[in-house]
Each structure stands twice: as C-alpha cells, then as structure tokens.
Design a protein around this nucleic acid. Sequence first.
DNA 1: CCATTATTGCAAGTCTATTGCAAATAACAC
DNA 2: GTGTTATTTGCAATAGACTTGCAATAATGG
Lengths: 140, 140
Amino acid sequence: MLEATTGQGLRATGRRMTRTRKAVLALLERTHQPLSASEIFSQLQEADVAIDLVTVYRTVNVLKEIGLVVQLDLHQEGQSRYELKEGRKHHHHIRCQICGKIVDLLLCPLKKLTKLIEARTQFIVGDHTLEFSGLCPQCQ
Amino acid sequence: MLEATTGQGLRATGRRMTRTRKAVLALLERTHQPLSASEIFSQLQEADVAIDLVTVYRTVNVLKEIGLVVQLDLHQEGQSRYELKEGRKHHHHIRCQICGKIVDLLLCPLKKLTKLIEARTQFIVGDHTLEFSGLCPQCQ
DNA sequence: CCATTATTGCAAGTCTATTGCAAATAACAC
DNA sequence: GTGTTATTTGCAATAGACTTGCAATAATGG
Ligand SMILES: [Mn+2]
Ligand SMILES: [Mn+2]
Ligand SMILES: [Zn+2]
Ligand SMILES: [Zn+2]
C-alpha cells in the first residue's frame, strides 16, 4: 500500500486519516490525470462517496501541506489541478486545447536557465512554472 | 505618439477610440509594471479619470483582441495582469514573492525544447507559459 | 467505551471576472 | 455644427472558484 494511504504524514502533523481523505487519495491514485476540485467532487459522487465540495478543497490543501499532492495552475484554466506526488520528480505538463488531455513532460530544462536569470536579475530564484498547450495527436 | 493611442487598430475592427480606452492605454504606457484590472481601476481613479471596473475589464479584453496588450497569468496571483505589447518581443517574467515587483526576462529559451516536446509527445505545441518567482535584490 | 480534538457539512461570504440593458457618446454624413 | 446610428459605458445582477464560521460528527488515544 502507498505511504499516502497509511496516514503517516497526516498523524505526524496532528492530523487524522479519515474516510474522505482516503477517498480523495485513492481517486488521485487511480487517475492518471491531474484533477480539479470540482472533478474530484463529481468523480467521488459517481463512486457513491458522500463528500462535500468544501471538504474536497480542504482536503487537497492539507495533502499539499504535507507534501503528498502537488497543485498545478495551468494556463487559462480558471481552476487549480492536483496530482499525487508519490515519489515522482518535479516535472511539467502539456495540455490539449481541444480535449483538455494533460500529458506529463518528464523533464525540467530550467536548471541552467535559473543560474543565468539569477546572474542577470540579481533575484534569488525560488520557483518556476512552465506549461505548454497545443493539439494532441487525436485532436489534430 | 504611439500607434496605440491613435486608434488605428481599433477603427480597423469597427471599434472606436474613446476617452476611457485612451486613459487605459496611457496608463499602461507610463507604467513599467504589468497591471491588473483592479490596479488599472484604482490608478485611474487616483488620476481623476472616471471609469468603471467593468469598463476596465472590457477595455483590456478589446486591447488584447486587437493585439495591443498581452495578458499575463502569473503563478499564485488570483488575477490576470496586462502589459503593452508595443513592438516588444515575446518574453517572460520573474516576480518577487515579498514585494511583488515584476521584472522582464528578455529571452525565451524554449524554441529547441518545443521541438523536442513535439517529437516526444506527438502534440503540436501552440503556446507556453514560463514564469519565475523569487526574491528581488531589495527583499533578500 | 469515553473524552478530547480534529474534521465535516451546510450556509454564507469573498474575490475575480462576465453579462443584460438602458443611457451616453464616438463616428460619420450632411 | 446638427442629426443619425452603432458602439461603448455604467450600474446591477450574475457566474465561478475558493474560503470561512459554526455546530454537528467522527477519529484518535487511553
Ligand atoms: Mn504530472
Ligand atoms: Mn513584460
Ligand atoms: Zn521545472
Ligand atoms: Zn517563451
């Protein structure tokens, strides 16, 4: 079983592993797309898991705080998406403008660029976002 | 005078150059930071320009449609920002997490990467976003 | 099983942005 | 300038994502 579903990270911060948190984690585990809060809500409803949308928001925030989940803010979607971290490395995404499919780009090309930017701007770079959009093979 | 303020792009699309559109363009021209709709609104109020926030939203959308303005969606700001295009090239930004200052990064390192992504994913890449955040020299 | 404390659901609220519609005004022809 | 007409504006209402207050519920530890 995944570390995620055992609740270790939760208990270590004085939190509890609950029915709804298990359900959200299990859904993210079996889904291979980053999901928005409203998608998590409706997919759990279809799976007959009683949960309020407010609880989904609170749950993804907790999971993000303890590092189990990553929040994505893709371009021109008015909502955040969430995906399991689960030992995976930092990476970026491309999203189809027609069907909305999101594919992982299993690379981050920005280490060198970060150094260059720090030299040029005198900023200390903390974070970055990099997202692509386009047409997936099916929608071309 | 800038092409922007003469209204050519507007008239070419059956639109009109108005007092409020002039005011928004002039503000963007004299400001060297990308501004949000509410910032445009309050800065124009301070300059004694009567304008409604709704009109600001409609104005930036029109200016974006005719290509005079670019819309930016920076990471973890719940609002869009707008900056004059005015002959400037495609570029990216870095934003200070403390004071909010936004600095232009006058480069885009993604041409080669785009080719690689197209080869790997079979997507046709249409667009991308790339934004950095960190600490500016003053806030370190 | 009980007591404690975190979590949940519901309602209400916040914030950014959009839409309907009547009144105002820019553009254009006289 | 005057008048005509289509565009634009302001106001109010609305939409959508997300948050907050609070009483009821449920997970933990003993
Ligand atoms: Mn991913
Ligand atoms: Mn810029
Ligand atoms: Zn990266
Ligand atoms: Zn670029």
